[in-house]
């Protein structure tokens, strides 16, 4: 296991991308930073994290051998690897908030940012950015955030947690390599946050409606049971779960 540790960097994903260009990077090479000055979330959003309290790291994986039709399986693999690692540390009430936030009860512990590179129209490289709240205890203005310490009362060793996640990434990418797609999807769906519970959603137009989260499609869209026993599929951009 190859882990590069940095005191401060703009973004671990960006750093790993640059490192990759120099051919020094092999599968599961990781870059960890005590502090990210420009941590990123979704397009245009930021990931902020207290220095040295949490894990902000990125892992490289070459995915060119997988002949991926549905890149969402990368998201499934990473979500499961993080969730299983947190289970290993006895974090209670874990779930995956679609598409790839990891929660304990209803608080977010971990955000995942995956950047893929397509060469010759094929998925070639994956840069997996993981932001996990570990020992931080105050989340000002973030009522839906929590940390491993807050939910368990224990202080965790950052390296130990990171190593566990990288180990599980390898386990789950091996399952993907074996093309056990339905196994991965079924396991992912079994951990979906608010699955089969009456939930409230907001669509792209701002209309609020209720429904039950059922499953995900191969492409990663969320299948929600709405009125009249109809199952509707939603793209990530078109639905927000209110909770």
């Amino acid at each position: 296991m190859r882990i590069i540790k940095l005191n401060a960097i703009d973004s671990t994903n960006s750093y790993l991308r640059k490192l990759c260009a120099s051919n020094l990077v092999t599968d599961y090479t990781a870059v960890m930073a005590k502090k990210q000055t420009q941590g990123r979330g979704q397009m245009g959003t930021v990931w902020s994290s207290q220095t040295s309290k949490n894990l902000t790291f990125s892992v490289f994986k070459n995915v060119s051998a997988y002949h991926l039709q549905h890149p969402f399986y990368i998201s499934i693999v990473v979500s499961l690897a993080v969730l299983k690692s947190l289970q290993f540390f006895s974090i209670p009430k874990l779930s995956i908030k679609w598409p790839n936030d990891i929660l304990s009860e209803n608080k977010k512990l971990c955000g995942i940012l995956i950047e893929n590179v397509l060469k010759q129209n094929k998925f070639s490289e994956s840069f997996i950015g993981i932001g996990l709240n570990v020992n931080q205890t105050d989340f000002k203005n973030l009522p839906q955030a929590s940390s491993l310490r807050l939910v368990t009362g224990n202080i965790f060793d950052l390296d130990e947690v990171a190593k566990q996640i990288i180990k599980n990434l390898k386990v789950y990418f091996d399952v993907l390599e074996g093309e056990h797609f339905s196994m991965l999807k079924t396991e992912y769906e079994s951990y979906l946050f608010r699955k089969n519970k009456p939930s409230t959603f907001k669509d792209a137009e701002g209309t609020v409606f209720s429904g039950f989260i059922k499953n995900v499609s191969e492409t990663g869209s969320l299948q929600v049971l709405v009125e009249d026993a109809v199952i509707k599929e939603f793209d990530f951009k078109t639905i927000t779960l209110l909770y």
Binding site: F72, S75, L113, V117, F123, G220
Partner: peptide, 8 residues
């Protein structure tokens, strides 16, 4: 971007 995966 597809389902929160950023594909370059």
């Amino acid at each position: 971007e597809a389902m929160k995966l950023f594909n370059e």
